[in-house]
Simulated assay, not measured.
Amino acid sequence: MSIIALQLYTVRDETARDFAGTLRRVSELGYPAVEFADYGGLSIPQMQALLAETGLQALSSHISLESLEQRFEQETAYALAIGCPTLIVPWLPPHQRTTEALTMLAGTLNHLGRKARACGLTLGYHNHDFEFAPISDKNPTLVLDYLIEQTDPASVSFELDTYWAAFAGVDPVEYLQRHAGRVTLVHVKDMTPERTFTEVGAGILPIAEIVAAARTSGVQGFLVENDQPRIPSLESAKRSLQFLRMLPE
């Protein structure tokens, strides 16, 4: 059964003030798991104690490509120690979006993915809207399609962000169905008619259909996220969770 987690970027205003206290509040809201955007400066023993206290599962963690390349051992050691099974590359800087750089990126992801798998971890890649643009004027293949095609399914998985897919004009339902088995985590986000962020279920995206497609295509976890909450961030996270819990299993 898929698990619902909160991407802590949603409540970054709260974690900046009180990281441990915010995770306690997230647990009280009913979330069983979280996806880290950072670790709040906590040491491994401190994070282990906090997760044990709150009962929260570390479902995944966003780690920059630079950090994975330069501090792989430290990043994987931290993840393993806190029971976090998946490390996600969250964003690609503009200079790495050229045709040549993307070719190198696919190789880098395969290399890091094999190293992660050898440690008992999974490496994933998270999209924004630019991955749904063609690689170049001469190559109409979408960037995300290219990365999916050029990476080893045994070593690299993908985390589909539904908001950014829809923002780019791509149907998240169709994309999940077309890439069944490659997308293992989904950022469940919603969009207002003005194409801004809102709570899950409060916008125009077909959340029930997205969740159903994700479940049938092998997705293991749903990550609630709101990049720019217009209400208190913990209240935003609460409303999104309440909506998802109303959907049929």
Results as ranks from 00 to 15, higher is better:
17 R>Q: 15
209 E>L: 10
228 Q>K: 02
179 H>G: 02
62 H>G: 13
120 G>R: 11
212 A>T: 11
245 R>Q: 13
6 L>N: 02
128 H>Q: 06
63 I>C: 05
146 Y>Q: 11
239 R>S: 13
8 L>E: 12
236 S>H: 02
116 A>H: 09
75 E>N: 12
102 L>N: 13
32 P>K: 07
128 H>F: 04
19 F>G: 12
91 W>C: 05
197 F>Y: 14
171 D>R: 01
213 A>W: 01
221 G>H: 11
145 D>M: 04
174 E>F: 09
82 I>A: 15
210 I>M: 04
26 V>C: 04
109 L>T: 07
59 L>Q: 10
109 L>P: 06
210 I>S: 05
217 S>Q: 06
200 V>I: 07
99 T>K: 07
208 A>R: 06
113 G>A: 10
34 V>M: 13
168 A>Y: 03
220 Q>S: 09
124 G>N: 10
66 E>C: 00
232 P>N: 05
26 V>K: 08
237 A>G: 05
178 R>A: 15
47 M>N: 11
175 Y>F: 12
132 F>P: 05
248 P>N: 04
73 E>V: 13
158 F>G: 01
237 A>V: 09
45 P>E: 10
152 D>S: 13
131 E>Y: 00
174 E>D: 15
92 L>V: 13
17 R>N: 15
143 V>C: 03
11 V>C: 11
224 V>M: 01
187 H>K: 09
161 D>E: 05
176 L>C: 08
135 I>M: 05
199 E>G: 07
5 A>S: 15
148 I>K: 09
27 S>Y: 11
52 A>W: 01
206 P>S: 07
176 L>H: 03
141 T>V: 09
32 P>G: 14
175 Y>Q: 06
100 E>F: 06
83 G>R: 09
71 R>I: 00
136 S>V: 00
33 A>D: 10
104 M>I: 15
246 M>E: 03
143 V>K: 06
180 A>Q: 11
5 A>Y: 13
123 L>D: 02
64 S>M: 10
120 G>N: 01
61 S>C: 14
170 V>P: 12
126 H>L: 04
247 L>F: 10
52 A>K: 12
123 L>F: 07
124 G>V: 09
41 G>S: 10
220 Q>C: 12
235 E>M: 08
216 T>K: 12
215 R>Q: 10
78 Y>D: 14
